[in-house]
């Protein structure tokens, strides 16, 4: 079999091609650099994170770019319309779903992604490869994006997400580590500074204070 045939059947993986996967800027220069251009323009992104460390704030520039519905499935609390309105997302673009079972959750997620009129933020554990593949196909069909939130150190590391990140709280912002990405190496880590966007939610002041040397005391 010649090389052309292998390429035609997509049996040879060509690294440079994946550089051209469509990306959307994350709004944070450090993160764009880490992700080589930004978040995937469509597909499933998994975020392993503690709650309330800034995981939604990290995504806010992403959410602002889209004039679609944002459907939150099983969020830990209700979205605050005031916060979203400050960031250019109208309350009429927000919908919260709390399906009664895991099966219904997956069904609803798939429908939302297929429709092409919404993106999804999903808080749900337990998904297998076949279900993830289905959701990825739905993302392709509807040109939509799914951000799935998981607890840190969850056992889902073997799933073929388009992008899998781990977020860790840091006094200056968020430490983002790439666990898996399509067309690239995992393992890189960057600190995303929140000081510019959210000065009240960083501990900058503490680092600027120079502790008074003990020896010189009185």
């Amino acid at each position: 079999m010649s090389l052309e045939q292998l390429l035609a059947h997509q049996q040879v993986w060509r690294g440079f091609k994946t550089q051209n996967l469509p990306k959307k800027s994350s709004g944070y220069p450090e993160l764009d650099e880490l992700l080589q251009g930004g978040f995937p323009a469509q597909g499933v992104t998994a975020l392993h994170t503690q709650p309330a460390v800034g995981e939604l704030r990290l995504l806010m520039p992403q959410l602002q770019q889209q004039q679609r519905l944002w459907i939150l499935i099983n969020p830990p609390a209700l979205p605050n319309a005031e916060f979203f309105a400050q960031h250019g997302i109208g309350n009429h673009q927000l919908l919260v779903l709390r399906p009664n079972s895991a099966k219904e959750t997956l069904w609803a997620t798939e429908q939302c992604l297929l429709s092409g009129s919404s993106h999804v933020l999903l808080w749900q554990q337990g998904m297998n490869v076949a279900q993830l593949k289905r959701l990825q196909l739905a993302c392709q069909h509807g040109d939509s994006r799914l951000f799935a939130f998981y607890p840190p150190h969850d056992s889902q590391f073997s799933l073929p997400f388009d992008l899998q990140l781990e977020l860790q709280a840091h006094p200056q912002g968020l430490q983002v580590t790439v666990l898996k990405r399509r067309g690239g190496w995992p393992g890189q880590s960057r600190l995303i500074h929140f000081a510019r966007h959210w000065p009240e939610l960083t501990q900058q002041q503490a680092s600027q204070v120079i502790p008074f040397p003990q020896e010189k005391v009185g």
Binding site: R57, P79, N80, N91, L94
Partner: peptide, 19 residues
């Protein structure tokens, strides 16, 4: 879906999720 309200220009820090 709720009917649309106007966006907010003033920046008072509010949490993204509300219990």
């Amino acid at each position: 879906l709720a009917p649309a309200s106007a966006l907010i220009a003033e920046q008072v820090l509010r949490p993204s999720l509300l219990l």
